[in-house]
């Protein structure tokens, strides 16, 4: 059984449908990527799973089963108990995710007290161990520092330390390296990889960066306009991208491993241009291969291990 199984997830804010029927699953110890551009619904998906969407503004439908239990039907208290020991989340902006007026050490021991019942010196020792684990030099001294005294990379490490304090079975990382420099990003990705390998933590990686996905993920789900448009094992996806959107994304990024000055072939238009388009395939207005059947109705997600949502995939390939 999958550790996390998201089925037909739909989230809307009033009239706006942010997530429009997303299915995917994460197995124990697996790294799964949700990749897409801004507005594709990837962050909303993760917040919905964690139960962190504002209840009044967002209406959530569908199911997210963690260990067979539907998270959406859990009472709030139960959900809160799951956050930490089972589900943990790392956000893009480490500064706003940390309490600015509380010392680093206190923020970690708080979690240890609440979820692992540790007190006093034991908690302190564990906090030092955790900071050391995420590669923070001189951890004992750092305990007394405040978030603003740390660099962006260090803050992200602290945040990861807090997230893994309870050895969660699933870690959701929402663009954890986007705000960081590339050499710092490499450090953090290395750390995440190491956590997955040594602790067996499953990781749901949310990112816009196909490079990050390629280096880290086992399974990849490409999101466009609130739907999964392609889903496949990472190697398969990059070797044989099938959906025109995935192909377009790959053709849009300049690459260091291709001959220099290779021309880029961008996707035309932008997602903002086609708000209000709801006939058939959401990508149709920007697609080079668009044909009559594309607007006949919404294409289903087809395929077994390598799934895609394009009715013309065979003809084009």
């Amino acid at each position: 059984m999958a550790l996390l199984e998201v089925e037909d997830l739909r989230v809307s804010f009033g009239e706006t449908r942010a997530v429009d029927g997303v299915d995917f699953q994460v197995d124990e110890g697996q790294v799964v990527g949700l990749v897409g551009e801004s507005g594709c619904g990837k962050s909303v998906t993760s917040l919905a799973i964690m139960g962190l969407l504002p209840r009044r503004a967002a209406s959530v439908a569908g199911a997210a089963r963690y260990d067979g239990v539907d998270l959406f039907s859990l009472p709030r208290g139960e959900m809160r108990r799951l956050r930490g020991p089972d589900l943990a989340m790392v956000f893009q902006d480490p500064l706003s995710s940390l309490n600015p007026v509380v010392q680093i050490g206190r923020q970690i021991t708080e979690v240890l007290e609440r979820h692992r019942g540790m007190r006093g010196e034991a908690a302190r020792k564990e906090a030092v161990h955790l900071l050391d684990r995420v590669g923070i030099p001189d951890p004992a001294r750092r305990l007394g520092e405040y978030p603003h005294q740390l660099s962006g990379g260090m803050r992200q490490r602290v945040l990861i330390a807090i997230s893994v304090a309870c050895a969660p079975r699933l870690l959701i990382a929402d663009e954890p390296t986007t705000a960081l420099d590339v050499t710092i990003q490499a450090q953090i990705l290395e750390l995440l990889k190491d956590l997955v390998d040594s602790e067996g933590t499953a990781l749901l990686m949310i990112t816009h960066d196909l490079g990050v996905v390629a280096g880290l993920c086992d399974e990849v789900n490409v999101l466009y306009s609130g739907r999964v448009v392609e889903s496949a094992p990472a190697r398969d996806l990059f070797a044989r991208p099938t959906h025109p959107y995935t192909v377009g994304l790959l053709n849009s990024i300049p690459r260091l491993d291709l001959p220099i000055h290779e021309p880029l072939r961008p996707i035309r238009g932008s997602i903002a241009d086609v708000i209000g388009w709801n006939d058939g395939c959401a990508f149709a207005p920007r697609c080079d291969r668009v044909a009559e059947e594309c607007v006949a109705g919404e294409p289903p997600l087809i395929g077994a291990a390598h799934m895609h949502r394009c009715v013309r995939a065979e003809e084009v390939a």
């Binding site: 490079g211 390629a214 880290l216 990024i253 260091l256 491993d257």
Partner: peptide, 12 residues
């Protein structure tokens, strides 16, 4: 250069 992740799982 070595830190930039490339969209190619084999190479990565």
């Amino acid at each position: 250069l070595s830190a930039v992740p490339q969209p190619d799982p084999e190479a990565e």
